[in-house]
């Protein structure tokens, strides 16, 4: 155990020394990010995009099942956001609705990157999703906004690196998407 700790310490030290050497190079390139988890903004955005894609797929699965087994969503969201998520699921279950079709998102851009948090803006596209009542009739609201501009904040935890959705706010008018 001690030996392992020692080895890790040595590895970290050597790693730090290498980084120091790199940083001391004549033309140091300032990193565009303050977070130490991701090497670059692109990497953080990729991680956020990947997490959101998985989350959205699970969200589609839960709503397709009429809100059954909502806990499937839980691994993707923070404790606080789970409250918001649960409220939406409650609305679905209460109405006896389910959905068909898949959601998608595009125009994902980085809005803010800081230690422990990534905020992206994206367009959530639900145009391919229909809402059905318990009898199978299409009850999708006529005035539903099919492309919603959302600002999604991810909480970043390390060891292992995990992104959890902490916020999902409409951030602009619908014309943005």
């Amino acid at each position: 155990m001690l030996r392992r700790t020692f080895a890790t310490t040595v590895a970290l030290f050597v790693g730090a020394a290498l980084v120091a050497c790199t940083a001391a190079a004549p033309k140091p390139t300032p990193t565009p990010t303050s977070t130490t988890v991701f090497a670059s903004e692109e990497e953080a955005l990729a991680a956020a995009t990947d997490t959101y894609a998985k989350y959205l797929a699970i969200s589609d699965a839960v709503s397709a099942d009429g809100g059954r087994e909502p806990e499937r969503i839980r691994p993707y969201v923070t404790e606080a956001f789970w409250l918001t998520e649960a409220a939406g699921i409650g609305g679905l279950v209460s109405a006896g609705y389910r959905t068909t079709g898949s959601s998608s998102f595009d125009q994902t851009t980085m809005a803010n990157l800081e230690e422990g948090a990534i905020t992206v803006q994206l367009c959530l596209d639900v145009s391919q999703v229909r809402v059905l009542d318990s009898g199978g009739a299409d009850v999708t609201p006529d005035d539903r906004v099919d492309r919603a501009p959302l600002e999604v904040e991810f909480e970043v935890s390390v060891n292992p690196v995990t992104l959890s959705i902490a916020k999902s706010d409409v951030w602009s008018n619908q014309d943005s998407c």
């Binding site: 709503s63 918001t84 939406g88 609305g91 906004v145």
Partner: peptide, 15 residues
């Protein structure tokens, strides 16, 4: 955040 409101994908789907 000129117009902000918490929205989950499920709420967006439901309109």
């Amino acid at each position: 955040a000129a117009v902000a409101n918490a929205c989950t994908p499920i709420e967006v789907k439901l309109g």
